[in-house]
Amino acid sequence: MIIYGVALLAICTLAGVILGDLLGALLGVQSNVGGVGIAMILLICARLWTHRSGGMSKECELGVGFWGAMYIPVVVAMAAQQNVVTALHGGPVALIAAVGSVLLCGVTIAAISRTNKGAPLPALESEIAPAAAPAVAPAGGR
């Protein structure tokens, strides 16, 4: 039954949102703390749990899969209702923040890919990375 999948997704989302609100109240902030993240973890756990008892039916998975596939269209609708007019007055904040973080991440990926082991080592290199970033920056420039 497709509705089982949709209901499972709904229950995980609601539980995550409520737990997030609860966590927010416990931490003393008037906000939801990581509700979506908690809901995602709950859904992964639910899937693992049902795997043990034979797994879900194809239709049940379809109920969740449909909404997963609707993710990009929903994001498009979300983009279409943003206050873009005001955001454009914010100036080049978005551009500079995006370019900066892509460069920093690119250098870090290269560093981790090359050293490939030892967790703390890449972290150290990435801290030096910002200074080195302009030199190696136009990675795509060749």
């Binding site: 997704l9 709904a10 995980c12 989302t13 995550g16 949102v17 509700g35 979506v36 809901a39 995602m40 973890i41 859904l43 992964i44 899937r47 998975e61 969740v64 899969g65 449909f66 909404w67 997963g68 609707m70 993710y71 929903v74 994001v75 979300m78």
Partner: peptide, 11 residues
């Protein structure tokens, strides 16, 4: 719906 769809991708 946004949160609903994002949670679904974790599946």
């Amino acid at each position: 719906l946004r949160d609903f769809a994002i949670v679904a991708t974790a599946f």
